[in-house]
């Protein structure tokens, strides 16, 4: 499982929600992901750690089929979605992605941000979509703000709205790309509390973050990315007692 004898891509785990095997991705000459393996199982919360440029964001973007991969397999529930014959829009409709900079649509109210995909992609009528959206806003603590525009909200509120937008379609897997990095420290807590709540509700999550506290508190498993691959992975306790020198150096311990 750990070492590969040839460059042949291994069979992905059919029981995992997400199963990545031998993923390789390049920007020009720079190899960002180099034969990376990763599994995320049902109801699991996996945290990706790693220095800036270690490929965390790229991995999340590749899983959401926003990047072309050079080699390897990304399987969702056993189906290889990197195959160019697969309808990428249908795959993305089953995934939720939350961005570092929120990426809410500025020309739409919070409610319309939440109902856009349910109505256009999932074919819900306006009433059904709005009911689900209002319930979701209540859950993320934004009840009453549905008519606001993103710029009228604080950063933390915007990010909670963005998380609500990703959750309202009940994705198989929620991808979170450093969702607290653009927030000032006072606002980080409210977003992390929401994520812990989302985690407790059983949503399968893959989280790129610099928040070690969040990893300790919420993660089932921690994966440390280095040189384009999962360098060390294990339970959150590896943050306290890293095995590899690279993870220790990243954590800043002696």
């Amino acid at each position: 499982m750990t070492h590969r004898v040839s460059d042949a891509v291994e069979i992905p785990d059919p029981n995992a929600v997400l199963s990545v095997r031998g993923l390789r991705l390049r920007y020009g000459d720079r190899v960002v992901l180099d034969r990376l393996d990763l599994d995320v199982r049902e109801h699991e919360c996996v945290v990706l750690l790693g220095a800036s440029g270690s490929g965390k964001s790229t991995l999340l973007r590749a899983i959401d089929l926003l990047e072309d991969v050079e080699d390897g397999v990304i399987a969702l529930r056993g189906v290889d979605v990197t195959d160019p014959r697969v309808d990428a829009d249908a795959v993305r409709a089953r995934l939720g992605l939350v961005f570092q900079a929120f990426n809410l649509f500025g020309h739409l109210t919070v409610l319309d941000n939440l109902t856009l995909a349910p109505r256009l992609v999932h074919g819900q009528d306006r009433r059904t979509a709005e009911q689900a959206a209002l319930a979701m806003l209540e859950r993320v603590g934004l009840a009453g703000r549905e008519a606001s525009y993103p710029e009228q909200l604080s950063g933390g509120q915007q990010q909670r709205a963005a998380i609500a937008r990703a959750l309202v379609t009940s994705p198989d897997l929620l991808l979170l790309d450093e969702v607290t990095s653009a927030l000032d420290p006072a606002l980080v807590g409210e977003v992390l509390d929401l994520l812990a709540d989302v985690r407790a509700s059983g949503t399968t999550m893959l989280v790129a973050t610099h928040e070690l506290g969040f990893a300790r508190r919420v993660a089932d498993r921690v994966c440390f990315l280095h040189e384009g691959r999962v360098w060390e992975e294990g339970p959150p306790s590896i943050i306290e007692s890293p095995t590899t020198a690279e993870l220790a150096a990243f954590l800043g311990s002696p």
């Binding site: 499982m1 390789r24 080699d71 999962v230 060390e232 095995t243």
Partner: peptide
């Protein structure tokens, strides 16, 4: 599996396209 620590060691050698990629 979940509670074992997995460690990947350095360079695994050069890369050649897998049959899937080809």
């Amino acid at each position: 599996m979940r509670h074992t620590v997995r460690v990947t060691h350095g360079d695994q050698g050069g890369w050649t396209p897998s049959p899937v990629a080809r």
